Amino acid sequence: MTDVVETKQDKIARRQVDKFQARRTQLATDALNTLAELGYARTSLRDIAQNSEFSLGVMHYYFADKRDLITQAVRQYEAVCVTRYDEVVARATSAEQLRDEFVEMFFDTLAEDAPLHRLWYDLRNQSLFDESFRADVLEIDGHREAMVGRVVSRYASLRGGELTGTPAVAYTLLDGIFHRALLHHLTGMTEAVARLRLELSKVMDYLVAGPQ
């Protein structure tokens, strides 16, 4: 079997690709605040360039269009969100700890990062009208569903029970609560958000059948 030796040209090409991807990541991160504040429809690459240290020409070099940029930005933020919940799952030693810490983080991130979550729902709604968004939205949605699946499966395991439905059903229920709570939060309806926070614990129990 012959080993494949990386040539000098290959190394240079790989470094160039890595640098290109790193700059895309940086630009997308810098763009998040502007996108989250204005939303997809009201934001242009020019708006983003005006709120960053990079020129419009640089934006066009690294991103094909606004859709490319917003998708990259949301992907990066969602990757961080998934990691947060995985940490909760990893350190939980009891069902009660997992449920309580999950509920706390669920509503903490809703309050702290409300504009970014609003951006995600904006992108998801856009995909209903713009087919070019759909593949990316479905992929991101799949990652979110998998994350919820890991949480509720671990919760069921710690309780010694079984899920009453599939991870997809669990995700649909929890996403519905999150979306509704986000709307109430943005509207300043704090009491409604508090009620949904209490309901989330009950929903977690509803998703699991078996020993307490």
Rank of each mutant, 00 (worst) to 15 (best):
residue 116 L to T: 14
residue 116 L to H: 14
residue 117 H to W: 09
residue 117 H to G: 08
residue 119 L to Y: 05
residue 119 L to V: 04
residue 119 L to I: 03
residue 120 W to S: 08
residue 120 W to Y: 14
residue 121 Y to K: 00
residue 121 Y to F: 06
residue 122 D to R: 01
residue 123 L to D: 02
residue 123 L to H: 03
residue 123 L to I: 06
residue 123 L to S: 03
residue 124 R to Y: 13
residue 125 N to S: 13
residue 127 S to A: 04
residue 128 L to K: 10
residue 128 L to I: 13
residue 128 L to N: 13
residue 129 F to R: 13
residue 131 E to M: 11
residue 131 E to T: 11
residue 131 E to W: 11
residue 132 S to N: 09
residue 132 S to F: 10
residue 133 F to M: 07
residue 135 A to T: 11
residue 136 D to L: 04
residue 137 V to A: 00
residue 137 V to Q: 00
residue 138 L to Q: 14
residue 138 L to F: 13
residue 138 L to E: 11
residue 139 E to Y: 09
residue 140 I to V: 05
residue 140 I to R: 00
residue 140 I to D: 02
residue 140 I to T: 02
residue 141 D to Q: 09
residue 141 D to P: 09
residue 143 H to P: 15
residue 143 H to D: 14
residue 144 R to C: 12
residue 144 R to M: 13
residue 145 E to T: 07
residue 146 A to L: 05
residue 146 A to I: 05
residue 147 M to F: 06
residue 147 M to R: 04
residue 149 G to F: 02
residue 149 G to A: 01
residue 149 G to Y: 01
residue 150 R to F: 04
residue 151 V to N: 02
residue 151 V to I: 07
residue 151 V to M: 03
residue 151 V to G: 03
residue 151 V to Y: 02
residue 151 V to E: 04
residue 152 V to C: 04
residue 153 S to P: 10
residue 153 S to F: 08
residue 154 R to T: 14
